[in-house]
Design a protein around this nucleic acid. Structure first.
Lengths: 315, 315
DNA sequence: TTGTACGCGTTATCAG
DNA sequence: CTGATAACGCGTACAA
């Protein structure tokens, strides 16, 4: 059996109440001498407060639930890491789940989190969310259920415009867009921004959010006659898939096809060739998300920055 | 205030004890009629058992702690995803933490997990672990503290031998090895296997487990005169970093330098050129780990399989 | 300033 | 077969 507050109290010749006062710095003052005895006793015994009992009493668990579509995506994994790190910094433990895992969909995952009484939930969902849960403790990143605004989001409009204009400055006129299976979530926003820029009713290319799917798309494009001279790609995994197809098909990047990816996770520096990207910085997003969770809620819009490398045609 | 078992009992004209018996199917039988009344009442009230109270009573939380060095690594993120998925399948929630995050080291993380009374811990540590915690509920994957055997591990010896021999069959005689900063953990094992195969006292090349560091190494190798004709690379992120450096330096893969990576996560199919790998399958490892956690403990050794693509010189 | 005692919502023992 | 009731470990009124 583990050592309890009672044990500490006994060893310090005092009561559990005082032990509690000392360890929580309140809500009542404790004489310096007694305080010292308690601290000593706690250390000697290696006392570790039982967080479950504490949670039962206070109804705060110190747990926060985090939902991501897919921890395997280069960008999401970077973001997830920063979120976890940030949460750790503020003393929270991270309950993690992939929403795309097997049968588990967003709602089930969130329900499961609620059942263990998490202190809050951070949801990073790239696609639509069925049920809007307005009245609650959920911080939506990137995307929110219909009717709700994301608590922290990226300035997709501006990012797409900067990238588009950069490609324009390279002399491209037919700038295509690789989007998701549907125009939903943040990728939908990016697609919309691109449509507006094109202004000619052109349709995005469709690809799932996977290397594989984008690779297949790239192969199709390479085989057909509709290969544009430049492509804005919604996510890093799609850009990487297209790079792979291009390499295999002998399509030279950027000479035959210029590319800009709109995530900009660290790996994009190390592809062959290195990808020019609109970098959506993960650390600020993570910080904004956990600050929002803590109630310091400035709804924030994080700006992306153009990082010029090889795939756009520069240098 | 939420509805409690007491409320259900009241509405069903019975006691909390019986409510508990019904909802847990035991440990005592309940008359069919009473059972029905309880179920009805529970449904009417929308009763949801308080898992915290339950945990306090049973000291089982349904939580399992999972520690990874770095969720950003292609291989680890794939493994993490499978672990989470598997855990979900058996009704556990996944508490996740990166051990390399900021100040948080393995032990602190594990202590934090223990404090919330996790039902078990899965530790995937690529480097050494200071304190061996033998008497406990932790499943070590790949690597274990000194004196302990990992519960589930890869057959690194065999994997390295197969890869080495494959390179040999391509006619290479100077086959180098890219390892970690120190010869620790599973990479240490891989390094040892390589040393044995070489048999001439050659030293591994050193690189941290990051794109960046391997890229720097690749650059150094390209600039110097000691570039071998073939390289076994311990991890995918290192292989990708070297690929990037080679691309920038005009070193042709596999013509000037043949490569085999020893992780084999999905992304290796989509590099330019595609990487030949020894694939350490993540799903079986994840399954073995959670089965071990559940007490169905066959210490397992998962075999890797050679996946031939372009970087080794085939085709 | 400190100690006693109750309650958080369960489960499980012990009488009935 | 069922009903009180005693824990689980902690926080905090309330009393001293």
């Amino acid at each position: 059996m583990a050592v309890t507050a009672r044990d500490v109290a006994a060893r310090a010749n005092t009561s559990t109440a005082v032990v509690s006062y000392v360890l929580n710095n309140g809500p009542r003052p404790v004489a310096a001498a007694t305080r010292l005895r308690v601290l000593e006793a706690a250390k000697d015994l290696g006392y570790l407060p039982n967080r479950i009992a504490k949670a039962l009493r206070t109804s705060r668990t110190g747990l926060v639930g985090v939902v991501f579509p897919d921890a395997t995506s280069p960008y999401f994994s970077a973001l997830a890491k920063d979120v976890e790190s940030e949460l750790q910094r503020v003393g929270k433990l991270t309950l993690f789940s992939n929403s795309e895992t097997e049968s588990a969909h967003e709602e089930d995952v969130i329900a499961a989190f609620r059942a263990v009484q998490v202190d809050g939930i951070i949801s990073v969902s790239s696609e639509f969310i069925a049920t809007g849960d307005a009245s609650s403790d959920v911080v939506y990143v990137f995307n929110a259920p219909p009717g709700l605004a994301p608590t922290v989001s990226a300035d997709d409009d501006k990012a797409v415009r900067i990238a588009y204009e950069h490609l324009l400055s390279h002399g491209h006129s037919d700038i295509g867009f690789v989007g998701g299976p549907q125009d939903a979530g943040p990728v939908g926003l990016r697609a919309a921004a691109w449509r507006a820029l094109r202004g000619d009713g052109a349709e995005p290319f469709r690809s799932a959010y996977s290397f594989e799917s984008a690779w297949a798309l790239g192969n199709g494009l390479a085989a057909g006659s509709s290969l544009p001279s430049a492509l804005l790609v919604a996510t890093d995994e799609q850009a990487i898939g297209i790079l792979a197809a291009a390499h295999e098909r002998g399509i030279r990047i950027p000479d035959d096809l210029a590319l800009i990816s709109l995530d900009g996770s660290p790996i994009t520096r190390f592809t062959a060739p290195a990808l020019t990207v609109m970098e959506q910085p993960t650390r600020p997003m993570a910080q904004a998300a956990v600050q929002a969770l803590l109630g310091n809620a400035h709804p924030e819009m994080i700006p992306a920055r153009l990082v010029i490398r090889r795939s756009c045609g520069c240098a």
